[in-house]
């Protein structure tokens, strides 16, 4: 157990060191493009969006939940990239030839991605706060939002790692990634509530786990516990199933790649 912890800590610290070596990249990791969605898109559609439809005092407060989950989505889907590069340049082989638990490398990546994602979510909620979006459920609500984000993020990161271990080249990886991310966002309740979507889109969107996450985060920000709790309970169940599925697939891909 002591060994296990030593491995995971050293491997996690490596991700942190890498990030800290690139000051620019670190800056843009925290102040990331997702903020543009909140600031520009949120304000841009302030008057174009009908508050009758969004059921929110203004569009930016409606959008905040979507941007939070979009951040989780992007981070999660990109979570395997560094392992992909490790695989391609042989670093992963070097790590795997040492007497470490096979799961340490992966766990370190989960810990790192989840931590960064949580920090980013806090930055987004902070910026939203400056635009007058005050979470209705307070600090406990924010903690719940982080928990939902992590539950969704674990599954996404597992998918990303599974892809990293399976693809032949990183070109393939980035094509799939670029292809996946936008439809996931448009076919969810991030920008528009399901009720306001064309029928075929809302039909597809209800199968998107992102929709479930957003539908739980949104009342935590907008309404309060009584409305949020049923959604939170539901999303926990959905995410448990989603994570189980993704982790199973991820573990399979990992075992196939690592012999």
């Amino acid at each position: 157990m002591k060994n296990y912890w030593q491995e995971i800590r050293a491997l996690t610290m490596r991700w942190v060191l890498r990030l800290s070596r690139e000051k620019f990249s670190m800056l843009f990791t925290l102040v990331q493009p997702m903020l543009f969605w909140l600031i520009f898109f949120g304000n841009l559609f302030q008057r174009a969006a009908d508050s009758q439809v969004t059921q929110a005092p203004n569009y930016i407060s409606f959008l905040a939940a979507g941007v939070v989950v979009m951040t989780v989505l992007n981070n999660g889907l990109a979570g395997g990239v560094d392992l992909l590069f490790d695989k391609e340049n042989g670093f992963l082989e070097r790590l795997m030839s040492t007497p470490i638990h096979r799961s340490s490398v992966i766990l370190s990546r989960f810990i790192f991605v989840m931590t960064i994602t949580s920090l980013q979510v806090l930055v987004i909620l902070g910026v939203a706060f400056l635009f007058g979006v005050h979470p209705a459920t307070g600090l406990l609500g924010i903690a719940t939002i982080l928990l939902i984000g992590m539950m969704f993020g674990v599954g996404l990161t597992a998918i990303s790692m599974a892809m990293a271990f399976s693809v032949k080249s990183h070109g393939d990886f980035f094509s799939v990634l670029g292809f996946l991310s936008l439809p996931m966002i448009f076919l969810s309740s991030a920008l528009v509530p399901l009720a306001a979507m064309p029928g075929w889109m809302s039909f597809l969107a209800q199968f998107n786990p992102m929709t479930w996450a957003i539908d739980a985060v949104r009342p935590l920000i907008l309404s309060g516990w009584s409305e949020a709790l049923p959604h939170v309970g539901m999303v926990v169940l959905v995410m448990l199933a989603f994570d189980a599925l993704c982790l199973y697939g991820g573990a399979k891909a990992f075992r196939r790649a690592m012999g």
Partner: peptide, 10 residues
């Protein structure tokens, strides 16, 4: 390893 298995940032 055969490749230069080096993390360029470390």
């Amino acid at each position: 390893p055969q490749e230069r298995a080096i993390d360029r940032f470390l």
